[in-house]
């Protein structure tokens, strides 16, 4: 599907917030336990960081390592419930998107997040084979951010119409621009907003 995020005007004109500064770092603390040791032994430098913030644990991994980590956690540590997949857009970063996987283990009653950073146009590996629930979740991420998942059985838009242009949850996709474009296309007038 040919997707081009064509905004009518440069987004700066309508940006609701001042140009985003690179956000300050999160005051996270290191996360060390038997789980991090086992993961570090297996994946070594492909996991860049083990941290916790407000008592919630997360790790930052290399994009290629995400699917193997999720598989390893599922098979060896009982993280059998993929709660959610989502993304966050940081347009000023070189690796623009942060993909976030939330995993839960019923046996351990523990929730962890796996984060990875990918560039614009880079494809992430699909985890539908491991967790069927990822099917719609990955479709939604694709729909909203334009991140493609390699190996997804049916990567189409899910919430937006098929002929929609752009990916609305990207930071450079402004609500007013979307509205102006719609009014111009369908009503043939300037929306005046």
């Amino acid at each position: 599907m040919a997707e081009q995020p064509t905004e009518g005007k440069p987004p700066a004109a309508h940006k609701p917030r001042p140009p985003a500064k690179p956000p300050a770092a999160m005051a996270s603390t290191p996360w060390e336990d038997e789980l991090t040791e086992a993961l570090r032994a297996k994946f070594q430098d492909r996991i860049a960081e083990f941290s916790a913030y407000l008592g919630q644990k997360f790790l930052v991994a290399h994009p290629d390592a995400v699917a193997p980590i999720i598989e390893h956690l599922k098979l060896e540590f009982g993280f059998d419930y993929l709660v959610d997949i989502t993304a966050v857009d940081y347009p000023e970063r070189a690796e623009r998107f942060e993909l976030v996987y939330i995993l839960y283990s019923f046996a351990r009653n523990e929730r962890i997040r796996i984060k990875t950073r990918i560039k614009e146009g880079q494809r992430a590996a699909s985890v539908v084979g491991l967790h069927p629930t990822a099917n719609w979740l990955e479709r939604e991420v694709y729909d909203m951010f334009g991140i493609e998942f390699a190996g997804h059985p049916d990567l189409r838009r899910i919430l937006l119409p098929e002929d929609w242009t752009g990916h609305p949850l990207r930071k450079d996709s402004s609500i007013l621009d979307m509205d102006n474009r719609w009014v111009k296309e369908h009503l043939g007038i300037e929306s005046g907003q």
Partner: peptide
């Protein structure tokens, strides 16, 4: 809120 992220369910 300070810079950070949280998942609450």
């Amino acid at each position: 809120p300070p810079v950070g992220e949280v998942y609450v369910s």
